[in-house]
Design a protein around this nucleic acid. Structure first.
Lengths: 348, 348
DNA sequence: GTGAAAGCGCTAACAG
DNA sequence: CTGTTAGCGCTTTCAC
């Protein structure tokens, strides 16, 4: 294998009988440099495959061109969509992404935050762990002049740009669709009371029902703790055993909806004719089961893109710009688990 | 906000009346330095939260402490498991991971390879795209003295350390299990003829059947092109319409198996009693459908860990060590889609 | 227009 | 044991 001493500015300068600084400026088409010299240098660089030593450039500029991304877990369709959006947007602007997992634990979150701080990332995007209820470890970034953007799972205690999904509108849309399709007794299996997502989805559910002049009984609201299929199954059983069982169930997430569908199938309750089901998140598996699951799509990829856009803006233009909160739409995807009444067809 | 000029070695040297080099060496407990000085310096550094400037260190050492990871797609359970393993192992040794997607296109693969080359990563882990049939773009890494490790989707044209899954043994295990459970007419929906995975799984199928003194007819072998649920459904229909339909179907991947199960459910063919089904990959959704799907687990996380281990070895110890190929086991996970004959219980 | 020189923070040979 | 010195490759004043 040949000697692979990488070509440096010095080499080019020597060969061309120029000064290093001239070569450096020529390569960036500095106005001071004559057209001829620029051409000369650029041609030489191209011909000999000059590649700037990023290590040196970054050192000189005190920039790593790395941004940190802290998410609860990597192996998860929603989060990997976010990651994908972040990477694409970051790479497009010459930045790398350092991915860290908190595993939904605040201790891990603190550890990786410290690591990112030490490795001098240029900025950080974070989606908070479920356990996180104070943000001192994140404020250290701000203290070190490193911008932060929060995405999806955010905290009001921390003033940064934020990108979130409109859970309220998504839920509202789902429940309205139930009503337009002829369902009247709509139950909701919701998530924990202290989680913002769950509260917003619940609010969307309640508002949609109210807006249509309907009402729901407290019996129709069930609270999931772990958001598992088993809980869905369990709560479906409870709901369907009520004296007046619901004719539609809106679930806080797809996995819970699958548990519900499993129960209904076992009891030979027809979906969507006897009971309609809508989930939330648009997991791949909703397309695969039968009947296919109607759900509310969360635009993970776009969340990642947008968050990165906001972060790069802060990195490039400084921390002083105002901290906006961007809200992306969560849209209903209608599949077989909701019946298709004529009243609805008219609308779409 | 206070001035946040980061503390440097120079600062410490000045404060302590020492030379910069002494401070540098003290911080790494160099044997030449006296215990007292070491303690003095370390205490000071600790007290004032000295953090080495990685940019400078890396520049000096010509090391980025970045490794590149090229995978076909991020939003995919198997690949995100690999990523997760790579990140964990890399971080543990002070390396970052730059993730790039080829989107299963060789053109994208070439582009990201070039980008990684330019950004001077210390090493690369790659899982080839389906389209990749020549590896000149990867050999450039070797020419630049950057070690490469291949994982899962590999090429024989490129001599590097490799980490793969024992597809043959996994398939063999699955089909043997069918036979031990009392199934005799076992079909196989396989993948493309030019894909190594598919061929190995087919070989495992064929060998297991042969070993048990059985045989299969060519009618029982179907070739999937896209590995979709639809193809599974389609081929299940074809298989079950044969004059002598199979009593078990081994599928090249879980998604195909789900298509098969969908067909069987619709035709009211009982799984597992009339027909047994086994998939491959251990996707999350196999646990959720009913009956739950037996499948062969591919250890993605472990693949990622092992590949990183091999890569770091090359990075640290140089490129000259021999290129080993590590084969990890793919183990059968028995769930409800295979009947539980007494003959089997005895074995496990 | 171009060149000379300084310096980013750190490491490592070399010298005492 | 510790200090001096040089230098990694690049950018950026400041001269000419």
């Amino acid at each position: 294998m040949s000697e692979k001493h990488q070509l440096t500015l010095k080499d080019i300068a020597r060969e061309l009988g120029l000064a290093v600084s001239t070569v450096s400026r020529a390569l960036k088409s500095h106005p001071d440099i004559s057209k001829e010299t620029i051409k000369l240098v650029k041609d030489y660089a191209e011909k000999h495959h000059y590649v700037p030593n990023l290590l040196a450039v970054n050192f000189r500029k005190s920039k790593t061109f790395n941004i940190g991304l802290i998410i609860p877990e990597l192996v998860h369709q929603f989060f990997s969509s976010i990651i994908s959006g972040v990477i694409k947007e970051a790479n497009q602007h010459g930045y790398n992404v350092m991915i860290c997992q908190s595993n939904e634990h605040v201790d891990d979150e603190k550890k990786v935050a410290q690591a990112l701080l030490n490795s001098r990332v240029d900025g950080v995007i974070i989606s908070l762990s479920n356990e996180t209820d104070e943000v001192s470890h994140l404020k250290e970034f701000i203290a070190a002049d490193i911008p932060v953007v929060q995405v999806d799972k955010i905290s009001d205690l921390f003033d940064t740009p934020k990108v979130i999904v409109n859970d309220f509108a998504g839920a509202y849309q789902a429940v309205s669709h139930f009503i337009k399709s002829g369902y009247r007794k709509i139950a909701h299996i919701r998530g924990r009371l202290n989680v913002q997502h769950s509260n917003e989805r619940f609010r969307g559910y309640a508002e949609a029902i109210k807006h249509e002049g309907l009402s729901y009984s407290e019996d129709y609201i069930k609270v999931c703790d772990q958001l598992t299929e088993e809980e869905g199954y369990e709560f479906a059983e409870q709901l369907m055993s009520l004296p007046g069982p619901p004719d539609a169930i809106f679930c806080v997430t797809d996995l819970v909806a699958l548990g519900v569908m499993k129960y209904l199938r076992e009891k030979n309750i027809q979906v969507p004719n006897q009971v309609g089901v809508i989930g939330f998140s648009n997991w791949k598996l909703g397309e695969i089961i039968s009947p296919t699951l109607s759900t509310v799509h969360q635009p993970g990829y776009e969340l990642g893109e947008k968050a990165t856009e906001l972060l790069l803006d802060k990195i490039v233009n400084g921390m002083d710009s105002p901290n906006q909160t961007v809200v992306l739409n969560a849209d209903l995807i209608v599949r077989e688990s909701v019946k298709n009444s004529p009243a609805v067809d008219g609308h779409y």
